[in-house]
Each structure stands twice: as structure tokens, then as C-alpha cells.
Amino acid sequence: MMYAVVVGALLVSLCLLLVRALLGPTVFDRALAGNAVGTMAMLLLAIFQFVSGRPEFVDLALVYGLLNIVGTIAVQKFFRYGDLGEPGVADEEHRL
């Protein structure tokens, strides 16, 4: 029962982060929101292993964390080294 509060809080923050990811306005804001969503997913996973009474499966959360890092670093690499045709602020201003 005591986990319900935390799960609720995490779900509320997921909603807020998703709104930020949908609003943008730059790609970097979306990437930031995506990174935070990954952290949230990791925490939710860890908590749900406790809810269903199998705390040994927390190592899956480690996999989530690593993947989150891989995704963010990939985003950074492509935006820094790639010639990506201005995915920055100017390109996004008329969207959403």
C-alpha cells in the first residue's frame, strides 16, 4: 500500500515530462525529457519489483539505466558531429 504514493508521484511526473517532450520546442528539450522519462521508468521498475515481492529482479533497472545513457550519448554524438541540417531552435519554431 505504501508504494502506491510513490508510484502515483512517479506517474504524475511522467505526465509532466511527456507534456514537455510533446511541447519541445527544441530537440534538446525532447532529449532531456526522454532522459528523465528513462530515469522514471527505471525507478518504477525497481518499485514494481518490490510491489510484486521479487526484489531480486532489480538488476533489470540497471539495464534500463545503461540504455538510457546509451540513447542520450547517441543523441549528443549525432548532434555534435553530424551535419544535421539545423535541428536546433530555428528549425523548430513553427512546429507545435
Binding site: 527544441t26 534538446f28 532529449a31 532531456l32 532522459n35 538510457n68 545513457i69 542520450t72 550519448i73 543523441v75 549528443q76 548532434f79 555534435r80 535541428p87 536546433g88 531552435v89
Partner: peptide
């Protein structure tokens, strides 16, 4: 590390 790389990429892209 992830935050720094994001900030750095944004800085490089002129945000």
C-alpha cells in the same frame, strides 16, 4: 555525463 553531453551538444549547436 549524460547531462553534460546534452548541454555541450546544445552549446555547440548554438542554443
Amino acid at each position: 555525463t549524460a547531462s553534460h553531453s546534452l548541454a555541450n551538444a546544445a552549446h555547440r549547436r548554438g542554443v
